[in-house]
Write a protein that binds this DNA or RNA. Structure first.
Length: 443
DNA sequence: TCTGGGGTCCTAGGACCC
DNA sequence: TCTGGGGTCCTAGGACCC
């Protein structure tokens, strides 16, 4: 916690809906709901006019329609939102080099580097008002709620106190009295599950939370969460404003209006999603080692399965077949409402030098071998995703290996659901398949 | 026909290594 | 045949955020 109120949090009001109302005057003053418009859609943002009818973020669109049938229901124009967000972040960066975006519509700004004459309450208040005016001017009238305090936590709580179009500066030294009477859910990280656990222990307000010992909180919520909440309950927060953070994963998922039951269709969808993930990886110069699929069953049970390559990839073929392979061990007979593919364990280098030229030339696909240049203590001879050839059964790829057994799926472009067989790791009939032009023996 | 999509962080158990 | 501990990596699931 700082001596001065020098952390600012800005939150654009009903952002997606406000952009729609700005760009389409006939929507102004009317209820607007942006979100999924399909049978299983949920509300992303409701305009304040729609909120008066009880429409809220994360509510199903079905329910929103029944509460406010005359609202405009829009599926969203993300290019427009991104563009407005870019303008806002530009304004913020013009006043401080330390701007940390949290999402398209929210950011922290560190005022210690904003060149203010001092950081007293009247000074930062005037500065924040000017900033709000500049945001409105730059975006064609979008309003923002702003909070300023001695930490990220306090600034964020403050920006919520006078929405929409408000400004709250919390004077240094008044943080604890601001927090004590409020419900524990004002603390970021206290969601429904944590709030319920605390409630069952008789903890409702921040003041209640403050009276609980560190040991008790850790016992109740675990090491990380417990220690974090212990500090926040006392308004202790030294987290810095961090301008750039590297992505840790890239994923694509989709919910279907009717449950999927056809495995071939599921495999086709995973393949398409793998292509989107791979394209985004390449666009950002990233590649990753761990491929994960996400499957939500008809009853909303959510499963994930993952596998890790010896070296990172950004290629559709590799990601797609690993994703399809991961699906094979799941029982989807009851129907699947959501399917997704993600890649994590990201590296910002693309490929091994030897193969990067090849990959560039071909610009995706067609380089069948993901050669395992293994580093670290494990050096699997048979790594998941590796192309192999069996003397009798032909070409396939490694689905898994371990305990002396390697499992191969004989799947080709012509026969996407080929058989799966297991072999001893030393089986002489099985060998790594190498493209002729690479001329390298990975084993 | 309740319950999106894109993320982050944490936990816990097992494998494996020293 | 019995007995350890620490550290890291991997997988699966869950809570949470906007």
């Amino acid at each position: 916690m700082r001596a001065h109120a020098s952390v600012l949090h800005l939150d654009l009001d009903a952002f997606f809906a406000a952009v729609e109302q700005r760009d389409k005057p006939s929507l102004r003053g009317k209820p607007v709901v942006v979100g999924g418009v399909g049978g299983r859609g949920v509300v992303a943002t409701a305009s304040y006019e729609a909120r008066r009818f009880g429409v809220r973020s994360a509510m199903s669109t079905r329910e929103a329609r029944s509460r406010c049938p005359h609202a405009a229901f829009l599926s969203g124009r993300f290019h427009a939102y991104r563009e407005s967000s870019r303008l806002v972040m530009g304004v913020l960066r013009s006043v401080s080099p330390l701007v940390e975006p949290l999402s398209l519509d929210e950011a922290f700004v560190d005022l210690e580097h904003a060149g203010l004459p001092d950081l007293e309450v009247p000074t930062v208040t005037g500065f924040a008002e000017q900033l709000r005016a500049r945001v409105a001017e730059a975006t064609g009238g979008l309003t923002a709620s702003v909070g300023v305090g001695t930490s990220k936590f306090i600034a964020k709580v403050a920006s919520d106190l006078d929405k929409p179009d408000g400004l709250v500066v919390v004077p240094p030294g008044t943080e604890v009295e601001l927090l004590r009477p409020r419900h524990v859910s004002v603390i970021p990280g206290v969601g429904p599950a944590t709030a319920e656990r605390l409630r069952r222990t008789g903890i409702h307000t921040v003041a209640d939370l403050e009276s609980v010992s560190l040991e008790e909180l850790v016992r109740l919520l675990g090491r990380a969460h417990g220690t974090g909440l212990f500090a926040l309950a006392r308004a202790e927060d030294d987290r810095p404003v961090v301008p750039e953070r590297e992505a840790k994963s890239v994923s694509v998922e989709g919910t279907h209006d009717t449950d999927l039951t056809d495995r071939r269709l599921m495999e086709a969808l995973l393949t398409r999603q793998a292509g989107e993930v791979a394209a985004r990886l390449r666009k950002h110069g990233l590649s990753g080692r761990t491929v994960t699929i996400k499957v939500r069953l008809h009853d909303f049970t959510t499963l994930s399965r993952s596998t890790t390559l010896a070296s990172p990839t950004d290629r559709t073929t590799t990601i797609a077949r690993l994703a399809r392979g991961l699906l094979t061990d799941l029982d989807t007979s009851g129907g699947v409402r959501l399917l997704g593919v993600g890649v994590s364990g990201l590296a910002d280098w693309i490929q091994d030098d030897l193969f990067s030229e090849l990959a560039e030339e071909e610009d995706e696909e067609e380089t069948p071998v993901e050669v395992e240049v293994t580093t670290g203590r494990r050096r699997p001879t048979w790594a998941p995703g590796m192309d192999v050839e069996h003397a009798d059964l032909g070409r396939g790829w490694v689905w898994g290996s371990g305990r002396g057994v390697v499992t191969v799926r004989f799947e080709t472009a012509d026969s996407p659901a080929g058989p799966v067989r297991s072999f001893a790791e030393g089986d002489p009939a099985l060998s790594a398949w190498v493209p002729a032009e690479a001329g390298e023996d990975p084993a």
